[in-house]
Simulated scan of single mutants.
Amino acid sequence: MILPLATTDLLPKVIMGVDPGTQIMGYAIIEVQGQRVRVLQYDVINMKALGSNHAVKLKKIYDRMVELIDEFLPDELAIEAPFFGVNVQSMLKLGRAQGVAIAACLSRQIPYVEYAPTKVKQSVTGSGNATKEQVAHMLRQTLQLPPLEEAPKFLDATDALAVAMCHHYQKGNNVKAGGKSWGKFLADNPSKLATPVAGKKATPSKKKPAA
């Protein structure tokens, strides 16, 4: 049964945000219901200890993404586009990392949308030239997050949270890869209603990234 639009708009939606990286990849999970936003978790995938083997890092990204997807059941993925200011080799590696993260979501039939870094910063802070620190500060004020150590690596997690919030501000209008509506999703997956999002983690991850 497809629920009326007015009803589906009131149902919770889970958004996964990702800030791609080949050494540190940030991720965030938020639950949105109307204008209410609840942060379920935000953290990083740390690959520095994996050495220089890029294939091993890509597998780590894929495996961890699938774990997160199966745990939180996100409805949509919002991912940051690679920044064109880096050199060609770095750009290629970053693009592969982004592609693997997207592939993990597509393997679970989760639609995605890509946002330029300046778009994300503009949506969260009002300035497309904001620093990582400014983005993190604004998110902590907006979402009333608990104070966390200002570790440079953790800023990748808040960047991912910014991507998820940017997608929320767009109301999901840019979703790609099928662009299923929430009503269509429920019609295809009636068991989703039997798994309340409230049963998931209700607080952001506070653990520090591995050194």
Rank of each mutant, 00 (worst) to 15 (best):
G172Y: 11
P147Y: 01
E150D: 04
V175C: 03
K171T: 14
C166R: 06
A202E: 03
A160G: 01
K201E: 11
D159G: 12
L193E: 06
T142P: 09
E150A: 03
N173F: 13
H137P: 05
P147S: 04
E149M: 11
A194S: 12
V175K: 03
A136S: 08
S181Y: 02
L155I: 01
P196K: 08
A136W: 03
H168G: 15
N189Q: 13
K180A: 10
V197E: 13
Q134I: 00
D156K: 06
A151K: 06
A136G: 05
G172D: 07
L161F: 12
Q170F: 14
K180Q: 09
V135N: 00
L145T: 05
S191M: 15
L193I: 11
P146I: 00
W182F: 10
S181I: 06
V175E: 03
W182C: 10
P152F: 03
M165N: 00
S205H: 14
G183I: 11
F154S: 01
A202T: 05
N174G: 09
P146V: 00
T158G: 00
A194C: 09
A164L: 10
G172W: 03
K201R: 15
R140E: 10
A187R: 15
P152K: 13
Q134W: 00
A136I: 06
K153G: 00
A162K: 00
K153F: 09
G199S: 12
P204H: 12
D188M: 06
H168M: 14
K180M: 05
T203R: 04
L186N: 12
A160I: 01
H168T: 05
A198W: 09
M138W: 03
G179K: 11
V197T: 15
N173I: 15
A177E: 06
E150H: 04
G183H: 14
L193W: 05
A164P: 01
R140Y: 08
W182L: 15
T195P: 00
Y169V: 09
Q144P: 04
Q144W: 03
E149Q: 12
K200V: 04
Y169K: 14
S191K: 13
A177C: 14
D159W: 13
V163G: 10
L186E: 04
K192T: 13
V197G: 12
